[in-house]
Design a protein around this nucleic acid. Structure first.
Length: 633
RNA sequence: GAUCCCGUAGCUCAACUGGAUAGAGCGCUGGCCUCCGAAGCCAGAGGUUACAGGUUCGAAUCCUGUCGGGAUCGCCA
């Protein structure tokens, strides 16, 4: 027998300690750091709550029979106060050791989890984490492409905050360069033509942007055509005229960019107008999405404009960048394609800006981690930029540490036709329109339920859901649906967007989670009516006897570990799965275990406390994902 | 052509990072409201994890190849 280690919140830790001791005792020659206990939640609850898979790899290392190794382990294993004694029958298959926790031990762990922070303890080394998210462009509406960057980025930021780290959000706004100068140029022309720009809308700006883009494209397309077609005098003349026209417009835009860069008041005023209109709409949309992205998170490309020349000088002077075919590039080990940091014509590129951004994020903001929540198509770009930044030392924090740079890549949002989601006419779908439709659908379903209330439970609170609350519920249900659908799948994969599926009020959806939460809350209102208040069960002894109670408790105990894993791996979908598991475990418990009508006072108070814990854990998960909650629906 | 990502039930997705009989939701079949919110719960049917090899006690997961789908590939961002 070995000395029993104390019981920690996470049974995995307790079991790990006990198994470690047993293995060390059984195989004294083993170096302590070489012991792996391989404790995991049991896949089959019938067999146990947890399992250790340590025997198999150990047997291999020692050249022994795995079942014998398992036997040697359990002989020295002391699970007193934690789990039922492990006997030879608990050894299954090639050497799995099945473990069933004692109800008392589970209750003890759960009691320790029942703190303000739900068992999530402050990190030993709090980090400064910079999260790049949202990434809107001036003069453009937010569209589905920004949905994931905003929603995932905000969730990643919230996860780090929840874990006790310090987070700086950076909205890398596309607010600089020739495309923007083109819009500014058009705006100046409009103003000179007598147009009052004070009531300019984002839609109008967007139209100007597209017109400008089209002109630029016309030039390129014409050039390509003329090379291909050649020899057709009429066509050539026509094309040349178009080129001249477009070329002149592009030329004016280039001059405008120069003016803008040199601080010409007329240009800057027009740029500012574009900026204000776009960002106003962007921040409003973020707010509707319940994403914590505010003005102070804005760090547009323009904010690096005065640093780019310095970056290039630095790279050149230290020999990190080299000339290649007229351009300036940084070669990165292991990558065939170099990172181009300056064009042949002397212009800078987005890689240049991104290098300046890394330098600021690590060097100035002190980011020990920088996480880019950006489209998977940029994977190569980030490999190049990260490599170049490291070569240049731009990833150093002020105290000399090397920042970890992550590209938290995500896949496309697809339509039901499995192609990137677009309108029928092939345009990007505006995010604002998408939100509108989600809310509209949620509202009509809500109205339908209230109108046909007799079909629903008698105490469905129709009489207390006034219009204002109803609007708020429709809003929350819609946003929960939208965000859960986006966050719950593996980040890197494409996912198919479907209003019908995400808003279906059944199955694995945001609304289901809200519903589960609402049911937990409903109990407390009923309890209060019966004169039972939160203080009455806050410290009630937890009695975990029914299978549904045990299952719920086990799910709750996973909470801290899941939040940590989801945060550290930038995988909100793990927390989504956990929230769904919590809701499911609660639903089963709620179905099978009477709470207010429990047979004894002890059971009733225990179950009320379990409900309270579930409500808090579920709410914590939803908050951490950035999903809004409601009190009733 | 090169590189990267993806391929799991009819459909949409999981699988705790190498563990046992691959799990959920939708849809389908059948149960459960005089009982705390049925937007729920329980049960059933549904699989050669694209394919072929390999690594080992053990593979959806790692390696090689093939086939399909997508993306990216020096002066756009």
């Amino acid at each position: 027998m070995t000395t029993a280690a104390p019981i920690s919140i996470d049974p995995l830790e307790t079991l790990d300690a006990r198994f470690r001791a047993a293995i060390a005792a059984a195989f004294p020659d083993l170096p302590a750091e070489g012991i792996e206990t391989h404790i995991a939640a049991n896949r089959q609850p019938k067999l146990g709550d947890f399992q250790s898979n340590a025997a198999m790899p150990l047997a291999k290392r020692l050249g022994k029979n795995p079942r014998e190794v398992a036997g040697a382990i359990i002989e020295r294993l002391d699970l007193s106060g934690v789990a039922e004694p492990v006997t030879a029958e608990a050894i299954a298959g090639p050497g799995f050791i099945n473990i069933r926790l004692l109800g008392d031990a589970m209750a003890a762990s759960l009691t320790r989890l029942d703190t303000e922070q739900l068992g999530i303890e402050p990190p030993e080394h709090p980090m400064m984490v910079v999260v790049d998210l949202c990434g809107v462009n001036l003069a453009k509406q937010m569209h589905v492409g920004h949905l994931r960057s905003t929603v995932i980025g905000d969730a990643v930021a919230r996860l780090y905050e929840r874990l006790g780290h310090t987070v700086v959000r950076q909205n890398h706004v596309g607010d600089w360069g020739l495309p923007i100068a083109m819009v500014v140029q058009k705006l100046v022309e409009l103003e000179q033509g007598g147009r009052d720009l004070s009531d300019l809308s984002l839609d109008e700006l967007n139209a100007l942007y597209r017109a400008a883009q089209a002109e630029c494209k016309a030039e390129k397309a014409a050039l390509a055509l003329i090379n291909k077609v050649g020899g057709h005098p009429k066509a050539e003349a026509e094309l040349e005229a178009r080129i001249e026209d477009a070329g002149a417009q592009t030329e004016r835009a280039k001059q405008r960019l120069v003016k803008l860069q040199s601080g010409d008041p007329e240009s800057v005023a027009a740029w500012q107008r574009v900026y204000d209109i776009t960002m106003g709409a962007c921040l409003a949309t973020c707010a509707r999405l319940h994403a914590h992205i505010s003005e102070d998170a804005s760090a547009g490309e323009s904010s690096y404009r005065d640093e780019l020349a310095g970056v290039i000088d630095d790279l050149t002077r230290r020999g990190i960048a080299e000339e290649d075919d007229g351009a300036l590039v940084v070669r990165v080990d292991g990558l065939k394609e170099p990172c181009i940091v300056r064009k042949r014509d002397g212009g800078y590129l987005y890689a240049t800006t991104d290098l300046a951004a890394i330098r600021r994020r690590a060097g100035t903001l002190g980011g020990e981690r920088v996480v880019y929540c950006v489209d998977a198509r940029q994977a190569l770009h980030f490999k190049q930029v990260f490599g170049a930044a490291h070569k240049a030392g731009y990833d150093r924090t002020p105290d000399g540490k090397t920042a970890e740079l992550f590209h938290a890549a995500f896949g496309n949002v697809l339509g039901e036709d499995n192609k990137p989601l677009k309108t029928r006419s092939g345009e990007n779908i505006k995010l604002a329109d998408l939100i509108d439709e989600a809310i509209e659908r949620a509202r009509s379903e809500l109205n339908r339920r209230i109108e046909f209330a007799p079909k629903f439970p008698k105490d469905y609170p129709e009489q207390i859901i006034d219009t204002a609350e109803r609007e708020q519920i429709a809003d929350a249900v819609a946003i929960a649906a939208l965000k859960y659908a986006d966050l719950s799948t593996e980040r890197i994969k494409d996912y198919v967007f479907s209003f019908d599926r995400m808003l279906a009020f059944e199955g694995e959806t945001g609304p289901y989670l809200l519903y589960a939460l609402v049911r937990t809350k409903s109990i407390f209102r009923k309890a209060a009516d019966a004169g039972v208040n939160p203080d009455d069960f806050a410290d009630a002894p937890l009695l975990l006897e029914e299978p549904a109670e045990r299952a719920l408790a086990l799910t709750l105990l996973r909470h801290p570990g899941v939040v940590r894993a989801a945060g550290e791996n930038h995988e909100p979908n793990r927390l989504c799965a956990h929230a769904y598991a919590l809701a499911g475990a609660f639903s089963t418990f709620f179905d099978q275990c009477p709470v207010l009508k429990a047979e004894t006072d002890g059971t009733r108070l225990s179950r009320l406390r379990l409900c309270a814990l579930t409500a808090r854990a579920l709410e914590d998960a939803l908050n951490t994902l950035g999903i809004p909650t409601v009190e009733r629906m």
